[in-house]
Nucleic acid binder design. Structure first.
Lengths: 176, 176
DNA sequence: AACCAATATAAGATATTACATATATGTGTG
DNA sequence: CACACATATATGTAATATCTTATATTGGTT
């Protein structure tokens, strides 16, 4: 149910087309939400149908025309209600840990490779997070909060790397 | 696609009924995978239909009869293939960060409450993880790996709490 | 006997997500 | 002009997940 809200949030900052929305999701909020292109367009259509967003066609000369989406008053209310509603823990689903849990079926070499693959994955994620340029500056509240979500991802990535170090050391000790 | 594999993994350690499987998922692997009861039964049926698991009815006197599920040879092959297949990063979806990202629309008090609610949530998760008794002991490889998945959850919970400390301090500084 | 709780399984309906494919416009390049 | 590529939107389909309800057995409690 939260993709609707994430989209309302983005459109409340900046009205845009579905195409740009997909790009914005990938680039700016990708560390805590992702969405398929088709899902973005379908969700936009749903928001418009429910009166939470409006669209108007904007003629463009150097590109195909687009639908510019904005949040309606009802959409803003919906957004604020969601922001203030009680948190509920999301179901955790971590395929890597699932594998590690059963990985004693694998030869030790393959276990080391699994840990190494995870390390590469996390290093990539960390690099991506640190590469996200935060355009605005200053002590604006929104800016502080958005930086905090980035810092969250970075902190967890670093923790994962430290945990990998410890886990690899533990594996060495228990496999002579 | 991974619930099938997680179930194959659990059944490869210990054949059991759908009912016990659901309990085991909640209690032992809940920190990296969750599943609805109906999903567990449906997935079991699917595994049996695909020849990856088998079921036999076991008559019980002090309880309703049950279907005891075991992994077939084909199921074990499937499990091992999955364990050794390349990792692919799961889409990250974190409703809490999504809210924080847009939370500057809320009054500051509500933002503090959001952070506090998250702290309560994480404290609960941490307590649950630390309460998981790991029955087996010794330097058995499987034991080491399962402890490592627990340690992973604990490390990330602690990181989240530290990040909350820092974020709350930052919020104080930027809201006079 | 009536009732509740735990054990045990399953199906119906809906929501969400993912994967693939289709279509069209405009720019730039060989 | 053919072709590739970025921009722009949309649908079909399948896989997954969630929410709800139904059913039956057994043991214990009032």
């Amino acid at each position: 149910m939260s993709l609707r809200h994430a989209i309302l949030g983005i459109l409340s900052i900046q009205p845009m087309s579905g195409y740009d929305l997909k790009k914005t999701i990938d680039e700016s909020v990708g560390h805590f939400w992702t969405a398929d292109q088709s899902q973005v367009y379908r969700t936009l259509t749903g928001l418009v149908n429910d009166g939470l967003a409006s669209r108007r066609t904007v003629a463009q000369t150097e590109r195909p025309n687009m639908h510019l989406h904005s949040v309606t008053d009802r959409g803003l209310s919906e957004l604020d209600e969601w922001l203030a509603s009680p948190l509920q823990a999301p179901p955790s689903r971590e395929p890597f840990l699932a594998r590690l849990f059963f990985a004693d079926r694998l030869p030790v070499e393959a276990i080391r490779e699994l840990l190494d693959a995870r390390r590469r994955e996390v290093n990539e994620q960390l690099a991506a997070l640190e590469a996200i340029a935060v355009p605005e500056n200053g002590a604006d509240l929104g800016h502080v909060l958005r930086l905090a979500t980035l810092a969250n991802g970075i902190a967890h990535a670093k923790t994962e790397l430290e945990w990998l170090d410890a886990t690899e050391r533990g594996l060495e000790r228990s496999t002579p």
